[in-house]
């Protein structure tokens, strides 16, 4: 899970909740981490948010299918102070561009459009949330992960009745801290979704082993991966796999033998073997 926040005060409740430790004091942006969560403090503004997102992605080794959350405070035209909302549209006031984070996670949060502004909003002219980072964060994070896994959560900190001037670091920390359970709940749902996305890319067990044994062209590697996926779905038994390949002398022969073996395999539905069952063991990850 990658978290992008603008200010230290927004980060503190998250750092405490996830037990994060500072990664490197001298880094370009402050980064905190545990085994499964990384948090970057971007500083205020959309350019900073975009840069920090890219920085964290590179620092983490450019992982695919990582859930990304931008968490922070926002003003709102009519919602009450302290409410946690999920961005269903992100607009950049300066450029007029809009983005629509897919609303797949349903954690019971209110959904609201978010308008990213370059200066703190004091007029609250529309019934939407005003922040300063989402429009920088979102398109940058969408380059790192599938759009469903990129979300922005905002705690309402000011509105027409309570001015943005009343905010100070303690108040911001308290606002985020009061919603930490809901943020964590949303995060869990997003992580479950990310597991499903990651499983779509899983390389079958035998791939590396066979790849070492023979030389495969890139096209052959794709074919091998797919044949092994079919194997793990239909047959699963790796000893049988080994036995069927024992006579093969090269990559082409091996791939053909594998394909012949699979094509001759009698498929019966509903599939009774122990491999991936239809209700999908991947989908089961959602509740894991």
């Amino acid at each position: 899970m990658h978290l992008v926040v603008a200010m230290q005060a927004e980060a503190l409740p998250l750092i405490a909740h996830y037990g994060l430790e500072e990664e490197d004091r001298r880094s370009m942006f402050p980064v905190y981490r545990s085994e499964t969560v990384r948090l970057v403090i971007s500083g205020v503004g959309k350019s900073m948010a975009a840069a920090a997102t890219g920085y964290l992605h590179a620092l983490a080794g450019s992982p695919q299918h990582m859930p990304w959350i931008n968490a922070g405070i926002a003003g709102h035209g009519d919602l009450t102070i302290g409410k946690l909302v999920q961005a269903c549209r992100i607009s950049d006031r300066a450029s007029g561009r809009n983005w629509y984070p897919p609303q797949v996670v349903n954690a019971g949060l209110e959904r609201t459009p978010v308008m990213t502004v370059d200066h703190p909003e004091r007029a609250y002219t529309e019934a939407l949330a005003y922040d300063m980072e989402a429009a920088g964060f979102y398109p940058a994070a969408c380059r790192c992960s599938t759009a469903e896994l990129v979300q922005s959560l905002k705690v309402i900190s000011d509105n027409p009745e309570v001015s943005v001037e009343t905010l100070n670091p303690n108040r911001v920390e308290q606002l985020l801290g009061d919603r930490i359970r809901e943020i964590a709940g949303f995060t869990r749902e997003l992580q479950a979704l990310a597991k499903i996305a990651a499983a779509m890319e899983v390389t079958p067990n035998a791939f590396e082993q066979l790849h070492k044994r023979w030389h495969f062209t890139v096209t052959q590697q794709h074919r091998l991966r797919r044949l092994l996926q079919r194997w793990s779905t239909l047959i699963t038994d790796e000893r049988e796999l080994e036995a069927s390949l024992i006579q093969c002398r090269d990559a082409t022969g091996m791939l053909n033998a594998l394909e012949r073996h699979l094509d001759a395999y009698p498929v019966r539905f509903p599939l009774s073997k122990s491999g991936f069952s239809q209700k999908s063991s991947l989908d089961a990850c959602k509740n894991a």
Binding site: M200, R226, Q229, R230, T233, F269, F276, S280
Partner: peptide
């Protein structure tokens, strides 16, 4: 297949 690599129907 990319979406459902483990899908039995598509593994035939």
């Amino acid at each position: 297949v990319r979406l459902y690599p483990e899908e039995a129907l598509l593994a035939g």
